[in-house]
């Protein structure tokens, strides 16, 4: 595919741990269209799946819901932006747990992975009907 092509794809997912495989499939499908190293594709898929997992675990506290979450992947001129939209509990950026490098307790690892993989992680208040809008960005050299 033409490397300069604009990619902008979005999909809704049920807010459930059972949706995570679908989130990965969607992400893999999108990154198949981009001429980047497989290792980077795998990392991006992991970051996206971790962010989706955090919505299930934290915004919805693993509670069953009919709500959907939306994931939008955009790439233009080497700027990758991944947006996550949900209607769960408002996320307070200050309460997001970051794992310390020497901490081997389970938990907080997902956010740690996201930070390692992406260039920037921004939490925003979602525009109606959304409550939370998480934006992950990364400059892609291809």
């Amino acid at each position: 595919m033409n490397n300069l092509a604009l990619i902008s794809e979005q999909r809704d997912f049920a807010v459930s741990s059972s949706s995570l495989k679908d989130v990965r499939s969607f992400s893999r499908e999108v990154f198949e269209k981009v001429d980047i190293e497989q290792d980077l594709k795998d990392e991006l898929v992991l970051a996206i799946a971790e962010a989706a997992q955090n919505i299930v675990k934290h915004a919805y506290q693993n509670q069953e819901t009919d709500d959907k979450m939306e994931i939008k992947i955009s790439l233009q001129n080497g700027n990758l932006e991944i947006g996550f939209f949900d209607k769960g509990r408002p996320v307070d950026d200050k309460n997001v747990r970051h794992r310390k490098i020497d901490d081997i307790k389970p938990g907080g690892l997902g956010t740690f992975f996201i930070q390692q993989i992406m260039d920037a992680v921004v939490f925003k208040e979602g525009e109606k009907p959304w409550i939370n809008h998480l934006i992950l960005t990364k400059k892609i050299n291809y």
Partner: peptide
């Protein structure tokens, strides 16, 4: 073929 932070947590908990 794939393991995320939840899988890693299982490894840590098992080890501990």
């Amino acid at each position: 073929q794939y393991m995320d932070s939840s899988g890693i947590s299982v490894l840590i908990e098992s080890h501990q």
